[in-house]
């Protein structure tokens, strides 16, 4: 049996990966305050309670502002870095790119405390703005990873052909490069948006009194009676992120197909 045991194992692994996510809607629709088995019957009341939960909407608003700003700024920075690293040779390239990509492997808590120390040291009040600063730092490496593969699959001679046919570097970028990497840009916006929306530590350390959605969720875990509402909220968030990721994946694949490349799979 070719790969039979491997397949069995891989399926078991998927069960392990999805176990928590499968439980989420179960408890979101379960008619009980205690999050435990056995289940107690179907209800949608947690979803309607979510609607009026105090603090949820301001947190959501903060999170949206942060996530959208983060996505735009990080993707813009990512375009610069990805273009520079795929197209040009320059002195200190490995070191510079290493520094920019460092947050990918640095524990978030380190980023959070070091930024906290500096921001407080120079007297910047903690707010949504400081959270954005941290999130941009965290998500830029992800945008670079996505955008680099988009820029990489671009044939260098396409750009030269545009110059050769009379375009300036700026108009060549607009007419040829931008349309071809657009799917990568959209995918990068979506991914950095998703990461920022979900990020907890930096928001916790740098948000001051301005609470984001994950910080709100974390605070609600302390009150058992509000946990079912969080399960309902989580169900919606998971559904939403799966939707966003599917869109991101769609654009990533279309981008590869468009530039005539081969799909090597995966976001990272």
């Amino acid at each position: 049996m070719k790969g039979g045991w491997f397949k069995l194992y891989a399926l078991a692994y998927l069960v392990f990966l999805y176990a928590p996510i499968v439980l989420l809607p179960m408890f979101a629709f379960n008619d009980a305050t205690v999050i435990a088995f056995p289940l107690n019957g179907f209800t949608t009341k947690w979803f309607s309670e979510m609607w009026v939960a105090p603090g949820l909407w301001p947190a959501l608003k903060n999170s949206m502002i942060i996530a959208i700003s983060t996505a735009v700024i990080a993707t813009a920075l990512g375009i610069f870095a990805a273009r520079a690293s795929t197209r040009y040779k320059f002195p200190g390239k490995a070191g510079i790119m290493g520094l920019i990509m460092l947050p990918l492997v640095l524990p978030e808590i380190i980023v959070a405390v070091s930024l906290l120390v500096v921001l407080l040291g120079i007297g910047v009040p903690l707010s949504i703005f400081t959270v954005i600063l941290g999130h941009v730092l965290m998500t830029t490496p992800f945008t670079i990873a996505i955008l680099s593969s988009a820029f990489q699959s671009l044939d260098r001679s396409l750009e030269e052909a545009a110059y050769d046919l009379g375009e300036t570097p700026v108009s060549a970028f607009r007419l040829v490069i931008l349309p071809l990497v657009m799917p990568g840009i959209i995918s990068s916006l979506l991914i950095s948006f998703t990461i920022s929306l979900d990020e907890f530590i930096i928001a916790f350390f740098l948000g001051g009194t301005q609470v984001t959605l994950p910080v709100y969720i974390f605070s609600q875990f302390r009150f058992p009676q509000s946990v079912p509402v969080i399960m309902a909220l989580g169900t919606i968030l998971v559904a939403l992120s799966i939707l966003l990721l599917s869109i991101a994946e769609y654009f990533r694949r279309r981008g590869i197909a468009k530039s005539g490349g081969k799909d090597t799979g995966g976001f990272l």
Binding site: L17, Y18, P20, I21, L24, T194, D198, F200, P214, I217, F218, F221, I230, M231, G234, L237, V238, S241, I242, L245
Partner: peptide, 8 residues
């Protein structure tokens, strides 16, 4: 699963 709310 990696992209769904870590906290939850």
């Amino acid at each position: 699963p990696f992209w769904t709310s870590y906290l939850i």
